[in-house]
């Protein structure tokens, strides 16, 4: 959509440049172009406004009121909702949990994904099948994967506890999800299982872009397999890894479904994320003002981190591209 708009705008601009000397008729042409641009941009803009701008504005408005979800929004409280969100230990813990998930996802999935991608990039029997198997969890709906893992992880009756018992081991007394100390790490493991496929697929795609000549040259120079990976493959995979890291970070900051199904944010708030916090405040407790404030804070945190990532990490790629 945007592509079309940009292209048509370019074309229009080129046309207007031709016509400029013609004076009056040129001015009519300018208006025509403007009408044309407006025509093409309006549908996209309307959707953007209806589904992104208006909801954000509503959330900001909501965050300044005390509102229970029905009746007119009249009880203006200024920034009080923000104070109560930012001083709420459950919310600050939720921010920490989000950051742990951000760091944990990257630290776990980057080396694992890279290793698997390198393995799957070698010519071997059953390559396609293995790639599919790795990618299946990512394709699975998050809610379905969550329900399956919730049942697998049931203490006493779940498959994982039964298997552990079979080899003489005991899971934690209250189960992996029911023990506050383990719950967040368990969620992280499930998330890794779920999203590893995406990392692998992206890395594999990136590997296709590494020119064969480099490998041949390295072989002629007598480089070992390890040296080839370290000096050629991984550095050339940099842009892919950085893009993947960005996607992973944003996903982790907005994490909701998996946590909601596995633990609901419990036990004892051990797995609350910003998103589960605001849904709980909004739909369960009808504190829509506080939910609004939390959503604005989440938006700001995500925006700041995204911009910082763009500036400090992704900018290298765009500069390289410019060269």
């Amino acid at each position: 959509m945007t592509d079309t708009v940009v292209r048509s705008a370019d074309r229009a601009r080129a046309r207007s440049a031709d016509r400029r000397p013609e004076g009056r008729r040129g001015r009519a042409g300018v208006w025509r172009q403007r009408a044309e641009i407006a025509l093409f941009v309006t549908p996209a803009l309307a959707l953007l406004v209806a589904f992104i701008v208006v909801p954000i504005a509503t959330a900001v408005q909501m965050s300044l009121y005390r509102w229970k979800g029905f009746g007119p929004m009249v009880d203006f409280v200024g920034l009080r909702n923000y104070v109560s969100v930012l001083t709420n230990e459950v919310f600050t813990d939720a921010v920490v949990h989000n950051l742990i998930i951000v760091a944990g996802s990257i630290l776990l999935q980057l080396p694992l994904g890279l290793a698997i991608a390198l393995l799957l990039n070698r010519k071997m029997w059953g390559q396609g099948l293995l790639r599919t198997i790795i990618f299946v969890p990512y394709v699975l709906a998050e809610v379905i994967a969550g329900v399956v893992w919730f049942q697998l992880l049931q203490p006493q009756y779940g498959v994982i506890d039964t298997m552990l018992a079979g080899v003489g081991l005991h899971g934690p007394e209250q189960g992996f999800l029911g023990t506050p100390e383990y719950a967040l790490w368990t969620v992280l493991v499930v998330l890794t299982w779920k999203y590893l496929g995406l990392a692998v697929i992206l890395f594999l795609a990136g590997l296709q872009g590494v020119p064969d000549e480099l490998y041949e040259a390295a072989q002629l120079d007598g480089a070992t397999w390890w040296q080839v990976q370290r000096r050629i493959t991984i550095p050339l995979l940099g842009p892919t890894m950085r893009t993947w890291g960005f996607l992973s970070m944003i996903g982790s900051l907005q994490l909701f479904d998996m946590v909601w199904i596995l633990t609901g944010g419990g036990p004892a708030n051990a797995t609350t994320t910003m998103a589960t916090f605001l849904v709980n405040e909004g739909t369960k407790r009808q504190n829509f003002g506080i939910a609004g404030a939390a959503s604005v804070v989440l938006f700001v945190i995500a925006l700041v981190l995204a911009l910082a990532y763009q500036k400090f990490i992704l900018s290298r790629d765009s500069k390289e591209g410019g060269r």
Partner: peptide, 15 residues
């Protein structure tokens, strides 16, 4: 209480 009661649901499913 049953093991893992902190994350047990009230009415959905056999567990």
């Amino acid at each position: 209480f049953n093991k893992g009661f902190l994350t047990t649901a009230s009415q959905t499913g056999p567990t």
